[in-house]
């Protein structure tokens, strides 16, 4: 089975949908028309670029190039996590916490999956490594940014409660435990829901892509199951790391709540 190649005309027809949507939203004064068009153009340009990069990468299999690509992806994800915070940590902490947590979780799990489970030759074969890492980063990024956003926002709102606990001689761990657990939960709910709905309500993008690309359905399904598990592991690990480090950062060495370490994003 081979793929039916898409022509530029095919893509333009689909693109026309976005243009129509932009026109309608303009007439409804949704203030979204411009953003829609910018987003559509960005999608096109970014994906075309990544297509070229991947083509070059697959042509020159070298660990250095793969590592470089992975770093760029990681930094972009770190920036994205930071920009989604309503109240973010001051200084390098905001970027650092998210990026570190994603590094710990996504990289570790991608390497684990490549070396132990999929075992391509060589293990850093970009055709496997890059899409896998991309999917893990994209999903841990969501978990981490939801978790961190929840943590900082609720610490800000519930200052009196946290300090009320501190006043009674509770440790910072006791004072923040409730918020911390809530934050981790909210970071994990999307992936739990995704696993619940997979196959019933939604056909996951990767699997659909593989099937469209001509893979036998059962092979695509097996890969999807693998990916789901990896994403769940990565999101859990990453969100826990980020929320734990973040909650530690909210207190100083005398266990005072330091909301001055947050600023409006």
């Amino acid at each position: 089975m081979s793929v039916i190649a898409l022509s530029p005309l095919d893509l333009s027809l689909a693109g026309a949908l976005v243009v129509v949507l932009a026109i309608i939203s303009r007439s409804m004064r949704l203030q979204l028309g411009r953003q829609l068009l910018v987003a559509a153009v960005r999608t096109t340009v970014q994906l075309l670029l990544i297509g070229l990069v991947l083509k070059a990468l697959f042509g020159h299999v070298h660990p250095g190039w793969v590592a470089l690509m992975a770093c760029v992806m990681l930094l972009a994800a770190g920036r994205e996590v930071m920009s989604r915070q309503k109240r973010r940590f001051t200084g390098a902490w905001s970027f650092g916490l998210g990026t570190l947590s994603m590094f710990v979780s996504s990289f570790a799990i991608t390497v684990l999956a490549l070396v132990v489970i999929i075992s391509p030759q060589p293990w850093y074969e970009p055709q496997y490594a890059i899409p896998l890492l991309g999917m893990l980063l994209g999903n841990t990024m969501n978990g981490i940014s939801i978790g961190m956003d929840r943590l900082t926002a609720s610490a800000w709102d519930q200052r009196t409660l946290i300090e009320g606990r501190l006043m009674l001689g509770q440790t910072w761990r006791q004072a923040i435990a409730g918020l911390r657990n809530e934050s981790i939960r909210s970071g994990l709910i999307p992936i739990v829901n995704a696993m619940m709905a997979a196959g019933l309500v939604s056909l996951p993008g990767m699997m659909t892509g593989q099937i469209l690309g001509g893979s036998p359905p059962m092979e695509a399904v097996k890969y999807q199951i693998l990916i789901m598990f990896l994403i769940a592991g990565g999101t859990g690990l990453g969100t826990m790391t980020a929320v734990w480090l973040g909650s530690r950062r909210l207190f100083d060495e005398r266990q005072r709540l330091r909301l001055d370490r947050l600023r409006k994003g």
């Binding site: 009196t160 300090e163 009320g164 501190l166 006043m167 009674l168």
Partner: peptide, 23 residues
């Protein structure tokens, strides 16, 4: 105060704030 953990200090130096917190 610096010679003991902060929670221990706060248990001995109790603060009753104007607005009490309940969780």
């Amino acid at each position: 105060s610096t010679r003991m953990p902060a929670p221990q200090w706060r248990r001995q130096v109790g603060l009753l704030p104007a607005e009490s917190a309940w969780w």
